[in-house]
Amino acid sequence: MRFSAAPSVASRLAIAVASEPERAHASSGAMPAGAREDALRHLLQTAADAGCTTVATRPEGDNERLLGQAWPFPSPFTVTVRTVPLSDGLDRLEARARRSLERMGLPRGETLLVSNPADLAGVEGRALWDRLTALKTRGLYRKIGFCATVEDGPDLLARRFQPDVVQIPCNLLDQRAEQDGTLEALAAQGVEIHTAAPFVSGLLFMAGDVLPPEFADYAPALSRARRRLAEARIDPMQAALSYALNLPGVTSVIASVASAAELRAMLAAAHAPRPNIDWAALALPQAADLSRTMHGAGRSPLDDFSRISSAA
């Protein structure tokens, strides 16, 4: 009898290359010409060497093309791609999913996710899902699924469409997907669960005096969470990744990263022993309000692509 090895920590940590590459160079000004491409190659090679081989992308900006130019050869990476909004039209949505692979120089992708669950809940939801299913049948993507928050009812959507993958935020500050049974319900359906936004767009690392004004109401609760971690002598990055990586049923944790140095810091934190702490005590009581505030501020709780500050 053959036994398959348990997935390594690095293999379960997926990276989303930050859309603001200057984040890693904030103290030294804008990046010189060509430095962005070199930095991305270094980041990807660091990820490949560590065994961190899943890259999450979005169909906006120039990141997909830059990734296509920067893959190490031979490339060990698989990609997770998101759709454009259904409001662009079904034909445009399908064409852009194909175009994402072309821009990255890949014959096929690992996973294609509907970006907005409201697109599936609407009148064209079934037609949209049929388009994704056809792309999977043709071998362009191995898995299909959708992104959702707790408010979107991902369990019910999964029962209706039977996705391979659901991406959902669940982190130290917003633990609702674990506490209300959403993760358990998805796992019971055989769905592969990806959690997103482990760093809550950087809020976990920000002191109250530097919080953007729209998040000022959460400063006391954020301060309490940081104080609990400090008293337990636990680094916030270590705590965030340990919580996410140990969630039952979760197969992949997607974290935003802007540089090889940032990735090395994440990997070191992810490999650290799991802290002995009351995780539930770190959750924000106003997690639902925080999710709505992030949406209103243009910072999606579904990912850390645009983190407020660097965690490194």
Rank of each mutant, 00 (worst) to 15 (best):
H295E: 13
L128W: 06
G298C: 07
K136D: 00
D38C: 08
D303C: 11
A47F: 01
S256L: 06
Y243E: 07
P169L: 11
A50R: 12
D49C: 04
Y243D: 02
R103A: 12
G153L: 01
G145P: 02
A240L: 07
L40Q: 09
F205A: 10
E37L: 14
A265W: 00
A5G: 06
L93A: 10
D119P: 01
T195E: 01
A24F: 07
G61D: 09
G125L: 06
S87D: 11
V84N: 04
E94N: 04
A312Y: 09
A10Y: 07
E20K: 12
V17C: 12
R299C: 03
D235V: 06
F199S: 00
A148P: 00
P163W: 06
L222P: 00
I254A: 03
I144R: 14
S27Y: 10
E231P: 00
P275H: 14
L66Y: 02
G68S: 07
V166R: 09
E214N: 05
P169E: 10
D88G: 01
A56L: 08
R58G: 03
F205T: 03
A185V: 05
A97K: 09
V210S: 12
R98S: 08
V191G: 01
A230S: 15
S291P: 00
M31C: 09
L140M: 11
A207M: 05
A70R: 09
E60T: 14
G296L: 11
A281F: 00
W129R: 10
A121Y: 03
L183W: 09
L101C: 07
A134N: 12
E20M: 11
G51F: 04
V253H: 01
R2H: 14
R2E: 05
A288C: 01
V200N: 06
G122L: 01
A185D: 10
A6G: 01
H25F: 08
L247F: 04
A268L: 11
P248G: 10
S27A: 14
E60S: 15
S242Y: 05
N171I: 02
A50I: 03
P7T: 09
A121N: 10
Q45G: 04
R142A: 15
A35C: 02
